[in-house]
Every structure is written in C-alpha cells, then in structure tokens.
Design a protein around this nucleic acid. Structure first.
Length: 367
DNA sequence: TCTGGGGTCCTAGGACCC
DNA sequence: TCTGGGGTCCTAGGACCC
C-alpha cells in the first residue's frame, strides 16, 4: 500500500492548482469585545489574564499592538507598555458561539472545514469550486453577518495557505500560487513556517541556517545530526512548498486536563493535595459529562524556578471513577512535593481516552 | 518584564515478551 | 557463557500551536 518515493516525486512534480483556504480572524477575542461594546472601539483592548495575577495576553486589539503588546506577553508587561490599556478576562462561551456561527458560514457551499482553535480554520472547497471565489464569498459573509474582519490566504498546500493569510493582516486577501512560492521561499526565515518554533530557529541559527535557501544549502548529514530524521523530513517538505500530508486524524479529543498557576508559590503538601483533588474532580466531571473513560492519569507540577515535571500512571482498564483517578493522582503528586520547594503551577489530566462506541466493543468481547 | 491554559505530536529509554 | 532481534507498552520530557 505504501507509496514509493518515485511515485511521490512524480505526484509532487505535477503542477498544483490552488486548492485550500486558510482563514484567520483578526484579533478575534478583542474584536468580539469591541464589536459588542462600542465604547471599546478605537482603544487598546487586552483580553487575557490579569496583570496582577501572573496572567498573560491572549489577544489584543490592533490599537494595543501599536504599543508593542502581543499575544503570550505577561499582562504585567503589557500594562507597563500601555497603562491606559483596557484589560478584559476571556469570555470563552461568547467566543465559542461566534466561532460556531463562522464555521457555519465557511461550510455553506459544502466545503470541508478543518478548525484550528476558535479563530482559524482551513477550508477545502468541494470539487470543481474555485477557492479564490469561495474565499471571497466567505470573507464577505462573515463581515456582513458577524460584523468581524478576517484575513484569508489561498494556496495549493496548507502551510502556504497559512503563510498567505499572515501576509496582509488585518483584513487581508493573499494568493500564493506555485510561481509566487518559488519567488518567496528562498529568502523566507524558517521561523515563519508553521511548526518551526523559537527553539528550532535558535538551534539552526547557531549553525548559520536562517532561511529556506540556507536550509537547502546545508549538507543532509548535518541536518540529520541537528534535527533527527523526522524533523529533517518535515522541514524539507515545508521549505520546498510541497504539500505536507499530515492527516490530523479525528476531531475527538485525545486528552482532558486542568491546570492552574497559583497567585503565589505554595509549599504546604496538604494544601497542594487539596488543590489537586479539586482539579482532578473537575477532570472527572468532564469525563462523566461526555461519557468518556480514560486509562492514564497525569499530574503536572511547575516549581518556582519554572522547572516543569510530570508523573503519570496507566491502569489496566479505562475508568471514569473519581475514587480511582484520585487514588492514582494523589500519590503521583506526593512524589513531586517535598514541602520546601516553591510550587507555582499544579495540573491534573487524563489521556488514552475511551469513547462510548469503543466501550461497546470492549463489552462485546468481555461478554 | 517574568513568563496561562488548553491541547497535539514526537522521541527515547527501559521493561517485557516472543 | 554469553547474550539476537523485533514489537509493544509505559513513562517522561519537550517542541509547538492557538
């Protein structure tokens, strides 16, 4: 069944037409807040954690970006940069409702919608439909019906469509065909590629590899030593502009977790245990509500020096029993707490989820 | 300036089994 | 007396994404 290298090369050397849209809502959470409260319009709005409680910026309006504020920045830093900024907590139930409305608009013509979080998605047009036309229709409908702007990119492969939508934000519309890709890729910084983060950028930069052209000019042996075979192959595909086929299997969640950063570091094992129980119960509630069971329990801790560790335990059979999950989690935590080291974050989660239809099959065999 | 919370995927070593 | 090779599961850590 597996495709030979030769077949793969034949396939990718054929000219590829535009086939996929990436759509990214502009400053989504902040834009929703500004839409719903006219007094916020034209002002620096920061949505996310509180500057007084170790929070970070989730999204900020374009007015706030002019002060240098951006996502993932500590909120305290954002306040320093712009003391007059308006800080709002995230209202996920509201954003989810708007996201649902946008998904409906994207799927209207029978397109396949692949969501990546609440504020962006890939849209795969049905056979025979021109993606540029479809992208224009979607962009117009979202503005008219939802009252928000977005940036869209159209290309022949998902990483390039994503790159395209980022080219002209906000309210952008960018097409990257094969000729455009050939022109822009050589000078493109590797960090602009989807999946190439700060660690990889820093590692490669230390060896003088900063752009796609640098990457192509590096001996294969050196790349393999630096990155290992898996990531070398991924980057080779990404920098070449060829489609990266990574089927993201189902839309079903693979893990459920809850974690919290404490306002102040904690040391007392009894207090940490109590907090862990709260978080584990929250996870159990979700399991029960969604009719799931899980076979692995994980406890996560972050010490005051930011060192982050996990401990996990797997059961022979999946469970959603609170007593069993707590009974596994608490000893895992005890292994991580010594009563003297400060703890800034505590988390509990479950993985290896079993869905109701999986359970039926298990019972069939157990019967 | 002092670093969220929710996830996904990958790697690597050791245990264990055939 | 020395010691295979492969497969799978478990555990832990880490990069990355929104």
């Amino acid at each position: 069944m597996s495709e030979s290298t030769q077949e793969r090369q034949l396939r990718v050397s054929r000219p590829m037409g535009l086939s996929v849209i990436h759509l990214d809502m502009d400053a989504f959470y902040a834009a929703v807040e500004q839409r719903d409260d006219p007094t916020l319009r034209g002002k620096p709005v920061v949505v996310g954690g509180s500057p007084n409680a170790r929070g970070v910026v989730s999204t900020c309006s374009y007015e706030a970006r002019r002060f240098g504020i951006h996502s993932a920045m500590p909120s305290s830093r954002a306040r320093d940069l712009c003391p007059s900024a308006i800080f709002l907590p995230s209202d996920f139930s509201k954003y989810k409702a708007v996201a649902r409305q946008i998904r409906e608009i994207m799927g209207r013509d029978g397109a396949m919608v692949e969501s990546l979080g609440l504020d962006e998605a890939f849209v795969h047009p049905p056979p025979g439909m021109d993606p540029v036309t479809l992208a224009g229709r979607i962009k117009g409908d979202i503005l008219r019906e939802v009252g928000l702007t977005c940036s869209v990119g159209v290309s022949y492969a998902r990483p390039l469509a994503k790159l395209a939508s980022e080219r002209e934000k906000p309210d952008g519309f960018t097409v990257i065909d094969q000729a455009a890709a050939r022109a822009m890729l050589p000078d493109l910084p590797l960090g602009d590629l989807w999946g190439v983060g700060p660690r990889t950028v820093a590692l490669l930069a230390r060896h003088g590899i900063e752009t796609c052209a640098d990457f192509w000019g590096t001996p294969r042996e050196e790349l393999l030593t630096l990155l290992g075979p898996g990531r070398t192959w991924d980057l080779a595909l990404l920098t070449s502009g060829r489609p990266l086929v990574r089927e993201r299997s189902t839309s079903r969640a693979k893990s459920i977790s809850r974690e919290t950063t404490l306002t102040q570091d904690a040391r007392d094992p009894a207090a940490l245990d109590e907090l862990l129980v709260e978080m584990a119960e929250h996870v159990v509630d979700r399991l029960e509500r969604e009719g799931l069971a899980a076979s692995t329990v994980t406890v996560k801790i972050r010490y005051s020096n930011f060192r982050t560790l996990t401990r996990s335990r797997t059961f022979g059979a999946a469970t959603s029993e609170s007593s069993q999950i707590l009974g596994a989690a608490r000893p895992l935590l005890a292994r991580l707490v010594d009563g003297s080291t400060g703890v800034r974050l505590l988390g509990a989660g479950v993985t290896d989820l079993v869905y109701p239809d999986d359970l039926r099959q298990v019972r069939l065999f157990g019967a």
